[in-house]
């Protein structure tokens, strides 16, 4: 399968500061890759290198299997974190301008924009000046300008910042639809919920290096500590006695559903799940038994803390 984006050993320094230090990863066609990292990890420099705004010192970037070139970059849909619109221009006129810069003809741009304006409910704002519309509305217009030319690769840097929950959900759904129709997406964000909801893969940068990468599910699975959760109806003491020495109990809390209890345990012998369920099932009614996998946030924090301890600071 052709990779929409392939980065190999990318390096960039500003003076003595190594902002990118041998970064490598791929974005498969039609997938959503989350680019994560604390502030100053090198995410924006990486994205600017891909977009040709910053010239890397070394390494290679390939777009759709081809070596990096300006024409291919122009096809990328790019929503930078620091984004804005011309305040004195009308919304529609401005969107047409950005579409034209992406190579669309005027009529083609207007037709496509009308569809997108309707889809994200900004139709009716076409002839308004940007200075007269709300920040959220401007954010939607910027998103439309990013995707209107139907780019094969979309790079979104903090796309949900500034959106209310309803519009954030609308953008998340749209991104998911874009990916399902074959668009590859590189999503840089600090919003871990959207990473969990959207990303097929994640790449975690810290101090210019990739410290964690892979499929989101696989990473969460590999980060599983063995903890499981039992939701049951019955007596806490009976549950604890039945469990005996088969598992360590972290605690029992009240579930949000009335009459249900939630216990967090870790089996001493992971292969004896059946014995455990038989023993506790005899004294309480087991409603649910699930693995407690780490959240993206906990994986992120853990990986950053570990790598920070390993990678010496350069400043």
């Amino acid at each position: 399968m052709v990779k929409a984006l392939s980065i190999e050993h990318l390096r960039k320094s500003f003076g003595s500061l190594h902002v990118l230090d041998g970064v490598s990863f791929d974005v498969q066609a039609g997938s959503i890759v989350g680019l994560l990292g604390p502030n100053g990890a090198g995410k924006s420099t990486l994205i600017r290198s891909i977009m040709g705004i910053v010239e890397p010192d070394g390494g290679t970037i390939a777009l759709n299997g081809q070596p990096w070139n300006r024409e291919a970059v122009r096809g990328i849909g790019y929503l930078p974190e620091e984004r804005g619109l011309y305040r004195d221009m009308k919304v529609g006129e401005q969107a047409v301008y950005f579409a034209r810069l992406k190579g669309m003809g005027r009529k083609e741009a207007i037709d496509a924009l009308r569809i997108w304006f309707d889809r994200l409910e900004v139709d009716g704002w076409w002839d308004k000046k940007v200075s007269d519309i709300s920040k959220g509305m401007a954010q939607k217009v910027q998103f439309i300008c990013t995707v209107v030319h139907n780019p094969p690769l979309v790079i979104l840097d903090e796309p949900l910042s500034g959106f209310d929950p309803i519009n954030a959900r609308r953008i998340v759904d749209t991104v998911r639809q874009l990916a399902s129709s074959g668009t590859s997406i590189l999503l840089s964000t600090h919003d871990m919920q959207s990473v969990e909801r959207l990303c097929d893969e994640v790449v975690l940068l810290n101090r210019g290096k990739v410290v964690l990468s892979g499929e989101a599910d696989a990473l969460r699975e590999s980060g599983w500590s063995g903890q499981q959760e039992v939701v049951f109806k019955g007596n806490d003491l009976a549950f604890t006695n039945a469990m005996g020495a088969m598992a360590e109990l972290s605690g029992i809390t009240e579930d949000s559903a009335p009459g249900l209890r939630r216990a967090r345990i870790k089996l001493r012998q992971p292969d004896r799940t059946g014995d455990f369920l038989t023993a506790v099932g005899a004294v309480v009614e087991v409603v649910e038994f699930v693995k407690v996998r780490p959240t993206m946030e906990s994986l992120f924090i853990g990986a950053v803390e570990q790598s920070t301890a390993e990678i010496p600071s350069e400043t």
């Binding site: 705004i53 790019y78 984004r83 011309y86 950005f98 810069l101 300008c145």
Partner: peptide, 9 residues
């Protein structure tokens, strides 16, 4: 107004 980064992309 931060338009410039979109433009120079």
């Amino acid at each position: 107004s931060r338009v410039v980064e979109v433009l120079i992309a």
